[in-house]
Design a protein around this nucleic acid. Structure first.
Lengths: 112, 112
DNA sequence: AGACTGAATGCTTGTACAAGCATATAGTGG
DNA sequence: CCACTATATGCTTGTACAAGCATTCAGTCT
């Protein structure tokens, strides 16, 4: 595998993965699953979304491999399936935190 | 800061960061800068995009703090400014690789 | 069987945004 | 000042997709 010439196909997959994580409600859902699996109703309450909307976003997340599904009677439990999600979120949050802190400092510096 | 109740604002920022990385051309641009800064014309050639389109995507990437800009005469050089981008890409690529390998194996298993 | 609950799916509407094309700005040299 | 090169910016069009609402599907209980 050449490291400097990613195929268009691979690029599309990576882009798609990022796109899946680029929605606030989906991020809330992922975040709500950090501490363990939850069924749809619980997720609706936790995220304060509508049932239909939450259900659809869960499909998206599951289809992309981020979440897994487990059916138990009437209820469907979703759980984090991709373990890299934690690190991904940590990285982005850390990076944004640093960036905002730097901006704040630069702003404070303007009055010197 | 409570770790289990991210503000809507913070969530929006994270989502936005992922959204910036969710475009194939932008990923190509980022990838083209892995080995050092490049000016717009070079990036147009490397990514085979149009000048206008490349320029606009570079704006997006720079505005979000992923890239930095350096002007030198007529030319503008862009460079990776957020060091976490490497790790972010590695994580996603690794995760996708595992996922695809697992799928391939599962598929092969169907004929057993 | 019917009534009920949890989850998924049509269908529509509004909005964000990528790409294309033409044009404008900025900087350089004659 | 004019011509030229590098980059950025209007403006338009097409497409993807989130949200809302109603409806359907699936499973449980009597």
């Amino acid at each position: 595998m050449k490291s400097n010439a990613m195929s268009a196909e691979a690029l599309g997959l990576v882009a798609r993965r990022f796109a899946v994580l680029s929605d606030p409600l989906r991020l809330r859902l992922v975040h709500s699953l950090f501490e363990g699996e939850r069924n749809v109703t619980q997720l609706v309450e936790l995220t304060k979304g509508t049932q239909a909307n939450v259900s659809r976003h869960l499909q998206t997340l599951a289809a992309s491999g981020v979440l897994g599904r487990r059916k138990e009677g009437l209820m469907v439990y979703y759980y984090l399936q991709d373990p890299t999600i934690f690190q991904l979120c940590d990285l982005v949050c850390g990076s944004l935190g640093k960036q905002l802190a730097a901006q704040a400092e630069a702003f404070a510096g303007t009055s010197r």
